[in-house]
Design a protein around this nucleic acid. Structure first.
Ligand SMILES: [Mg+2]
Ligand SMILES: [Mg+2]
Lengths: 602, 602
DNA sequence: ATGGTGTTTATAAACAAACCC
DNA sequence: AAGGGTTTGTTTATAAACACC
C-alpha cells in the first residue's frame, strides 16, 4: 500500500491517527522515499520515541516539541508531563507541537518534507513524486518573527501603504515581479492574515481588500474582480469573522472571533514559492497531476489535543511583525507547474478556534495564573499496532480519530482560558479612514481565463470533476470505466493500518435520547472547532470546555484529539499547555480512558 | 418613493420593521396597486389593527393569527396576550402568525399577494408587476394536512416508491408532466422536506436523493448529476444537518438538529406553479427582470419574536403526511417563465432554529406544562414615522431591526423549551435499508445548459452579474458608466421610510470589552438563529436564551424580533407561544424596553 | 480499483440595504 | 430631497478537489 507518488501522506489531507506507532503513520506512506525517521541532528533534548524538545527561540515561556511520526501519543503526553514538571509552573509551560522528523536546524529529512523552522534553506516541491530536489519551501517565519508584538508596535499605521515599505525590505518591489502568482492561501486564510496584521485586529472591508492586494499582487493584477466578491462571501460565510460596528455606527469592522483566532499572520505561515508557471504546461509528466494543492495554512480543523489547561494562560503569537514580511510573490523558484488557469482549491485552513490551542492575547493584559497540569499516566490503551484487520471498521465517512479503545488519556482545560478578553484599543480606532479609495481601474491585464467549469463531457459523476481542457495531458487521462470523467485521483493509500477508531457506538443511544446532547463527538473536524459559537455570555473559552461533556461523563474530559495540520509540508501542532500543580494529585484522572466514561466505546 | 414594480416590499427580501404602522410597511410599496388593507371577509375574529385570529383547522392547540401589514407589533402582542388569557393555559396556546391581509377563505387582496390558507384558488405570479391575473399560487397545504402525525402514522414505508402512490392521488403521474421544472426550493429546504417526511426524522443520503427525485422530477430528469453534489454540499455546509451513525457504525443518517428543525415539509410549504415559461421571454417588459426568485420557503432567518415561553411546550407540525402530497411538479399551470436555463438562486430558507418558534416534538411525549405569558404592555416607543432624516442613520450594512428606541417589548422564554427532547423511535430504525439502489442511469435527457457563468464581458463589478446571454433583452441594458457590465439592477426602492432602527451603538463598549461577549445582537439574520450550536450539554434550547444576555442586562430579555419570511407571497410567522401563568405578575417585565438595559440605545 | 459519501474551498449570482454623489 | 450608481453584506448554487470508506 501507500506509495502515493505525490505528497507525504501525513501531510495529505487525512487524519492523523497519532496513536498508532505504525510505520505508515508518517511519510512512508507518502512517497517512495521512506523517510527513515532519521532523527536528524537536533540540538534539542531527545525524549522517548524520538520526541525532541527545545526552547522556543523567542518566546520565553514556550518550548517546541517535535514529535516523530512514529511517536506514541502516550509518549508525547509523558514528555509533556515531564517537561512540565521539570520546568515548573513558572518555567516554559507552553508547548508548540510539531509533527514530523524535523529539526530546528537544517532538517530536510530524506524525501519526507521536513519542516524548516528557522532557516529558509528547505525547499519542498511536491510536484514530482517526492523528488527531494528542487523543493522550494521558503522561509518559515512563523517561529522567527514573533517578537514585534505587544501594543502598537506595529500599528500598520495608515493602511494606505504601510506594508509596502516593509515588503520592500524583504524582497523585490511588487512591480518587479510581474508574474504575481496566486498565493497558496485560501481566502479565509488571507483574511486572517489581513486582520491579524492590524494591532487592534479589526479591519474594514476595504482595508482587507487593500491588504490583500498589497501583499498578493495577484489579486491586484491578474485576478478577476470577482475575488472581492469571494472575500465578502468568506467574511459572511465563516462565522469566525464577525462584523462589529463602530460606536457611531458608521463603520463596520471585521474581526475574528477571539476564540477562533489563531493569530495567523503571513510571517507565521510557511510560504511556498512556485517557479515559472509556464513550465507547468511544458512538463505534464510526473504524477503531479497538477491538481494538488499548494501547501496552505496549517489546518486547525484537525485533531486537537485538548490538555488540562486550568488557567487562562494562552500562547500568544504576537501578530505578524510587519517588518520583513516575506512577501509571498517574490523569489519565484523556477519552473513550478502550479499556476495553471485552473483555480486550485486551497486546502482546509485554520478555521475555528482550536480552543485551547494558540489563543492569542491581543495586547497587554497579562493574567498569568498558575497553570495546573494533570499528569497523564494513562496505563490504558496504547493498543496493538496496525491491527488493520479490525473488522469493526465503521464503514462511514470521515470520522475523526475518536475515543475508541485506544483513547489518548488527556484531560481537558477546566478553566476559562480566554478571560483576558480582547481589548482592542479604541484609540487606534480611527486609523481606518478611507484607505485610498482608488478604484483600481479594472485590472489592466485581465485575462479571461475560463475558470468556469467547462465540463463539456457528459455529466456522470455526481461530484463534477474538472477536465484539463487545455493542454490535456494524454498520459493522465486514465479512462475511467463509468462516466467519461477523467480520474486523476492519486493512488489512494488504503488507509493503512490507520485503524479508524470506531467510536460511533455512542450513537446507539443517541437515537433514542435527546439528539442534541450527542451532537458533538465531532462528526466533522470542523465541528470540533466551531462549536463555541453560542453562549456569548461567558467570555470564557466556551468552546473547548463544552466539547468535553460530550460523552457520558460530565467531567472536563475530552477525547484525545490531535491536530494534524494536513499541510503539504509542515504540520504544526500548537498546543497551549499550562502546568500549575504538578503534584499528580489534582483529580487523579491521569489514567482515565474514554471507555470508562463512554460505555459505548469498546 | 418606492414603487419597485416587482414585488410587494414586505415580501421582498428585506427586514420587516413590524413596528412601523407605516403605510409602506405592507404592499403599498410594492406594486402600484396598493393593497388597501382590505380586511377581506374573514370568518375569524377580528382584533385591533385588523388582526384576525382563527383556530387552526387541524391542530387543537393552535390558532392562526393573521396580521395585516399595518398592524403594530404592540397590537399583535396584546392580541396574543388577550387570546392567551382567553384560552387559558389548557386552550389553544400556540399561534401561527401570518402576515399580510389574508383570509383563510378566499383572500386575494387587491394586487397584494395574499395568502391562501385552506384553498388552492389563489394564484400569485409576480412576473408582471403585480398584475393580479394569471397568478398561480397553488395550494397552501401547510395548514391542511398536518393531521397525520404522531408515531408511525406515516412511516414513508419503504422508500422505494412510497410517495409515488401518494402523488398519484393528487395529480398527474410524474411521467405525465415531462416538463418537470425546477422546484422553487433551495437544496436546504428540500433536504428538510425529505428528512422531515420520515417519521424518525433521519435519512441516508441515498434516501434523500430518492425522495427529492421522487418529489421533484426535475432532478431525476433534467438536472445535471451535479445536483447530488450540491445536496451533499448542503448537508455538510449547514450545521443544521448533522450526521448520525447507526449503532453498528455501518450507516450514516442525516438528521436535522432538533432545535433547528422547523419540521418543514412539502405540504406545509406553499408551492407556487408558474405559467408558461416561454411567456417570460415573450414579455420582456415590465420590471420583472426575470431574476426574481420564485417564492420559496418561509425564511426562518428573519426576525424572531421571542416570547415568554416558560415551559417546554412547542408547536408540533406533525411532519408531512405522506398522503396527498401535493406533489410540486404537477398541475403545470401553463406557461411558466421560470424554466429559463439560468439557475435561479432560491431565496434564503428556513435555516436554523427559530428557537422558540415551531419546535417540533417528533413523536409522543406530551410534556405539556403550564405556560406563562408575560403581558407586554410596552408604553414606549412607537416612534415617528419615516424619520429618515435621522442623521444617526448608521451608515452600515444590513443590520437587523434592532433594539432601538422602538423596541418591541417582549419577554423571552426563560425555561428550557426543548426538554422533552426528540426521541425518535428506534423501532422505526431499520426501515432505511438500501432504498432501492437503482443507479438512475445518467438522466436520459441531459441538456447541457451551460449554467456555468459565461460572463464573457470584461469583469468590472466585484460581484459578478449574470448576463442573460440568451435572448438578451436590449431594453434592459442600462449601460453603466464604469465597467461595461450590464446592469439589470431592479429599480431600487430607496428604502422608503422604513427607518432603519439604528441599534448599533451598543458596539461602543464592545470594542473595549471582551469581544466575545457582545457577539450576538445578531449582526446577521442567520446568527440570530444559528447561535445555539455549541453547548451540547444542555439539551435545553440553548440558542435563544443565550441570545438574550446580549445587552447589559443578563436577564432573559431579548430584543423584539419579528420573523419575516421574505417570501414572495406568503410570509408566515410561526411562533410558539405558551401561556402558563396569566397573572401578569411573572417578572413585571411587561413594559421593559431595551433602552433600559442597553444604555447605548438611544 | 472504483464509486459513494463527506468535507471544504472557489466562484458566480441574486439581492438587500446602506452609501455616495 | 430624490435618484441612480456603488459598496457592503448575506445567502444560494455549482463546480471541484480531495479524503475516506
Ligand atoms: Mg461571518
Ligand atoms: Mg452539516
Amino acid at each position: 500500500m501507500r506509495e502515493s507518488p505525490r505528497r507525504p501522506i501525513i501531510l495529505k489531507r487525512r487524519k492523523l491517527p497519532f496513536l498508532k506507532s505504525e510505520s505508515d503513520l508518517g511519510c512512508d506512506e507518502a512517497d517512495g522515499t521512506r523517510c527513515k525517521t532519521t532523527s536528524t541532528q537536533s540540538t534539542a533534548r531527545s525524549f522517548p520515541d524520538g520526541i525532541r524538545v527545545m526552547d522556543h527561540p523567542t518566546m520565553p515561556d514556550t518550548q517546541v516539541v517535535v514529535i516523530p511520526k512514529s511517536a506514541d501519543l502516550q509518549s508525547v503526553i509523558s514528555v509533556l508531563t515531564a517537561k512540565g514538571k521539570e520546568c515548573g509552573p513558572q518555567g516554559r509551560n507552553k508547548f508548540i507541537l510539531l509533527s514530523g522528523d524535523t529539526s530546528l536546524e537544517e532538517s530536510k529529512t530524506l524525501g519526507c518534507f521536513s519542516t524548516e523552522l528557522g532557516s529558509e534553506l528547505g525547499k519542498v516541491k511536491k510536484e514530482s513524486e517526492c523528488f527531494p530536489l528542487d523543493d522550494s519551501l521558503t522561509n518559515i517565519q512563523w517561529l522567527g518573527k514573533m517578537s514585534s508584538d505587544g501594543l502598537g508596535s506595529e500599528k500598520c499605521p495608515n493602511k494606505d501603504n504601510p506594508n509596502d515599505s516593509q515588503q520592500q525590505s524583504k524582497g523585490p518591489e511588487k512591480e518587479n515581479d510581474p508574474h504575481s502568482e496566486r498565493p497558496p492561501y485560501s481566502y479565509m486564510a488571507m483574511i486572517q492574515f489581513a486582520i491579524n496584521s492590524k494591532n487592534n485586529r479589526h479591519m474594514t472591508l476595504k482595508e482587507i481588500y487593500n491588504w490583500i492586494e498589497d501583499h498578493f499582487p495577484y489579486f491586484r493584477d491578474v485576478a478577476k474582480p470577482g475575488w472581492k466578491n469571494s472575500i465578502r462571501h468568506n467574511l459572511s460565510l465563516h462565522d469566525m469573522f464577525i462584523r462589529e460596528t463602530s460606536p457611531d455606527g458608521k463603520i463596520s469592522y471585521w474581526t475574528i472571533r477571539p476564540e477562533a483566532n489563531r493569530c495567523l499572520t503571513l510571517d507565521q505561515v510557511y510560504k511556498q514559492k512556485r517557479g515559472a508557471p509556464e513550465l507547468k504546461k511544458a512538463i505534464p509528466a510526473l504524477g503531479g497531476t497538477e491538481r494538488k494543492m499548494k501547501p496552505l495554512l496549517p489546518r486547525t480543523d484537525s485533531y486537537l489535543v485538548p490538555i488540562q489547561l486550568p488557567l487562562g494562560q494562552s500562547l500568544f503569537l504576537p501578530t505578524s511583525s510587519p517588518v520583513s514580511l516575506s512577501t509571498p510573490p517574490q523569489t519565484q523558484n523556477s519552473s513550478t507547474p502550479s499556476s495553471s488557469k485552473r483555480v486550485r482549491i486551497a486546502p482546509k485552513v485554520s478555521q475555528s478556534d482550536l480552543s485551547s490551542v494558540l489563543l492569542c492575547k491581543p495586547a497587554s493584559q497579562e493574567i498569568k495564573e498558575e497553570p495546573v497540569f494533570q499528569p497523564v499516566t494513562s496505563s490504558e490503551a496504547p493498543p496493538p499496532k496496525s491491527r488493520r484487520t479490525d473488522n469493526s471498521s465503521s464503514r462511514r465517512k470521515q470520522r475523526l480519530v475518536l475515543p475508541a479503545t485506544e483513547e489518548p488519556v488527556l484531560l481537558y482545560p477546566d478553566s476559562t482560558l480566554f478571560d483576558s478578553g480582547v481589548i482592542s484599543d479604541i484609540s487606534t480606532f480611527q486609523d481606518t479612514r478611507e484607505a485610498d479609495p482608488k478604484p483600481e481601474l479594472d485590472s489592466p491585464n485581465r485575462e479571461y481565463s475560463f475558470k468556469t467549469p467547462i465540463k463539456s463531457s457528459h455529466p456522470s459523476s455526481s461530484t463534477p470533476s474538472k477536465l484539463p481542457t487545455v493542454t490535456l495531458e494524454p498520459w493522465r487521462i486514465t479512462p475511467v470505466g463509468k462516466g467519461g470523467v477523467l480520474d486523476f485521483s492519486p493512488i489512494r493509500t488504503p488507509t493503512g493500518p490507520h485503524v479508524t477508531p470506531q467510536r460511533n457506538q455512542h450513537t446507539s443511544l443517541s437515537f433514542t435520547s435527546t439528539p442534541f446532547k450527542e451532537l458533538p463527538l465531532f462528526n466533522s473536524p470542523r465541528e470540533l472547532l466551531t462549536c463555541s459559537r453560542s453562549s456569548p455570555k461567558r467570555s470564557a473559552p466556551a468552546c473547548s470546555r463544552e466539547l468535553l461533556q460530550v460523552g457520558a461523563a460530565n467531567r472536563s474530559l475530552t477525547e484525545g484529539l490531535v491536530l494534524d495540520t494536513m499541510n503539504d509540508s509542515l504540520s504544526k501542532i500548537l498546543v497551549d499547555i499550562s502546568f500549575s500543580g504538578l503534584e499528580d494529585e489534582d483529580l487523579g484522572m491521569g489514567n482515565i480512558s474514554w471507555s470508562q466514561f463512554i460505555p459505548e466505546l469498546k
